[in-house]
Computed example of a mutant assay.
Amino acid sequence: MIILAILASIAAIGLLCWLLFTLAVFALPAFVGFAAGAWAHGTGAGIPGAILIGVIAAAVTFAFGQLLITFARPMWLKLAVAVIFVAPAAVAGFHATHGIVKHLMPSDAWQITFSVIGAIAVGITAFVRVAGMATAGGPTGRHLARA
């Protein structure tokens, strides 16, 4: 029974890590959505109105970022938008990794070390996914050559 619990724990950690890496790109839109929803609830919109405003704000943030990455011409603008999306993902990766390693090792120095490594890994993954958004649906070189 103990071995089954250990295997289930490893599977759960693996699933949560996969979920973290998959959803890292959506850290900024989620933050904006939660902030807008909290603001809407504070102004008296009620729970359904706050959820609606939060979902709309998150969708608009994601769509605006994707449009900027896809259609902006200057590379510095694309890089700036990518960094704006990657920074919250890296912070989320730091805290998620720290939440796991604080249960596994008593040393604060090693906890921070592994948390920083987790933040870097999640940040790189989010950057690759954001950069992939630019190439997946963006204009090809043939269209840019004509413009």
Rank of each mutant, 00 (worst) to 15 (best):
I13M: 09
A59V: 07
A147W: 00
A45F: 15
R142D: 10
A109G: 05
M133V: 08
I69H: 01
I51R: 03
A57W: 13
G123V: 08
I13T: 10
A57K: 03
W110C: 01
V83P: 00
W18A: 12
L144V: 00
A119T: 04
H95F: 13
A27F: 14
T61S: 11
A59L: 08
M105Y: 11
V55C: 07
K78M: 01
C17N: 07
K78S: 06
R142L: 08
L16Q: 13
V128C: 01
I100W: 11
I10R: 05
A50H: 09
I124T: 10
A134L: 02
T97Y: 03
P106Y: 00
K78L: 03
I56K: 01
G132E: 05
I84P: 00
A24G: 15
A63I: 13
P139Q: 09
F34K: 05
L67Q: 10
H103P: 00
A90G: 13
P48R: 08
I69L: 13
S115N: 04
K102Q: 12
A90V: 04
A8D: 10
G123R: 05
I10D: 10
H143S: 05
F64Y: 03
A121G: 12
A82E: 11
V86N: 03
A92E: 04
A92F: 09
L79D: 13
A5E: 12
G137Q: 07
P106G: 09
Q111E: 07
F34Y: 13
F64H: 09
A121V: 08
A87Y: 07
A57G: 07
V116T: 11
L19N: 12
I117W: 03
P106N: 02
T113R: 07
L79A: 15
T61Q: 05
I120Q: 02
V32C: 13
W110D: 06
I51M: 14
G54T: 10
W39G: 12
Q111M: 11
G138V: 04
P29H: 10
G132M: 01
A45T: 10
A35F: 14
L7W: 11
A136N: 03
L7G: 15
G54K: 08
A11I: 12
G42W: 08
G14N: 13
F34L: 15
G42Y: 10
P74K: 06
T140H: 10
F64N: 04
W76D: 04
T140L: 02
I69C: 07
F94E: 01
A109F: 06
L68Y: 00
G14D: 03
G141S: 08
G118Q: 04
A96T: 08
A38H: 12
P106W: 00
C17P: 00
F114M: 02
V83L: 15
A145H: 04
G14R: 08
F71Y: 15
P88K: 00
I10C: 05
H103W: 11
